[in-house]
């Protein structure tokens, strides 16, 4: 019995927050389903998943980075640049676009890892610099405008088509999250990532390969951002050098709402997905609310409401955690 219940055992303050986000997500879905006619329609569900897979991918990489106690501000710029690279390469072969975009992301991730572990620059500063550089590179490559993708090589299939009834971006996201869960929960390196976030010096003294592990985490974050850029280009038919602004903040918000501590050493892949979906769901519900015709919220107001929602969630989590600690 005890073994059966083990996955649900609350052992750390983070656990409670993680259960909270899943409950909140379920609550919002219930709310939407009861209030709006087409909320659970296949169209809404599929387009929701298709569009938000990009953000979920970035949040996954960000979760790993934040678990190590770091931050990756470059993901938005990286996605924008990767979308341009993918669009430019898409006429040659759909795979050229896919791999090229991912390679662009990988390159930024590798650079981040190098700057942070070898040159010992704070992740915040290092990725701030590469964020600016990535945006700039994207704009240069794109000549300051969006770059249309090729519709002949099948590149648009990646972002626009379905497989077994589900959008391909959603499949990509699902596979990425399963891999992420496997790495964090089942592979030694996942435990090492958590231990590094718990204390880098300690982890080093325990014989863990701190630098190599950190570099790999930033590499993964960059590559996932690159993949998100590929989906962006494929879904909207163009490489978009000016997209991606604020994506890193959305990703950080998703991770935090998912109960991962910004101080590192604790976090969960599943709750990160729930966090990303939760924030996206708020948008979706606001759109439906507009559709009812009683109120009309501009995108700016939506942003304000989302910010307020994030604040409420974070404050609630903090309260939960202090209660858990003292209790």
């Amino acid at each position: 019995m005890q073994t059966l219940l083990r996955p649900f055992a609350i052992k750390s303050p983070g656990d409670l927050a993680r259960i909270g986000v899943i409950l909140a997500l379920a609550g919002l879905i219930l709310f939407g389903a009861l209030r709006y006619d087409n909320f659970l329609s296949p169209f809404n569900i599929l387009s929701f998943l298709r569009y938000n897979s990009m953000f979920a991918l970035i949040a996954l990489g960000m979760a790993f980075v934040i678990i190590t106690g770091g931050i990756d501000l470059s993901v938005g710029g990286t996605a924008a640049m990767a979308s341009v690279v993918a669009a430019l390469l898409s006429p040659y072969h759909w795979a050229a676009g896919l791999l090229g975009g991912m390679a662009a992301g990988l390159a930024v991730g590798a650079l981040n890892g190098f700057i942070i572990t070898k040159m010992r620059i704070q992740p915040f500063i290092a990725t701030l610099a590469t964020m600016l550089a990535a945006y700039g590179t994207g704009l240069l490559l794109a000549n300051n405008q969006s770059v249309s993708v090729s519709y002949d090589t099948g590149f648009t299939v990646i972002g626009q088509d379905d497989f077994l009834g589900f959008p391909i971006p959603a499949w990509i996201g699902l596979v990425a999250y399963l891999l992420g869960w496997l790495v964090l929960e089942k592979l030694p390196v996942g435990r090492h990532i958590l231990a590094i976030g718990d204390g880098e010096a300690t982890a080093g003294l325990m014989g863990l390969k701190v630098e190599r592990t950190l570099a790999a985490v930033y590499l993964a974050s960059g590559t996932l951002a690159g993949l998100a850029g590929v989906i962006l280009a494929s879904q909207f038919g163009a490489g978009q050098p000016t997209e991606g602004v604020g994506w890193e903040l959305f990703a950080i918000a998703s991770v935090v709402v998912g109960g991962t501590l910004l101080t590192g050493g604790s976090g969960s892949v599943g709750a990160t997905l729930a966090g990303a979906l939760l924030l996206a769901m708020v948008f979706n519900i606001l759109n439906f609310e507009n559709g009812l015709g009683w109120i009309s919220l501009s995108a700016y107001w939506q942003s304000v409401i989302r910010g307020a929602f994030l604040l409420v969630v974070v404050v609630l989590q903090a309260k939960l955690m202090t209660r858990q600690r003292s209790g």
Binding site: S12, L187, P188, R191, L194, D198, G199, T202, M206
Partner: peptide
């Protein structure tokens, strides 16, 4: 020097975890 948020068992085996199929 232990990782405070990791479990006792994990701390004992960190960097030499017993593995099955990787």
């Amino acid at each position: 020097n232990l990782a405070p948020q990791r479990s006792v068992a994990e701390n004992i085996y960190l960097s030499r975890e017993p593995k099955r199929f990787g």
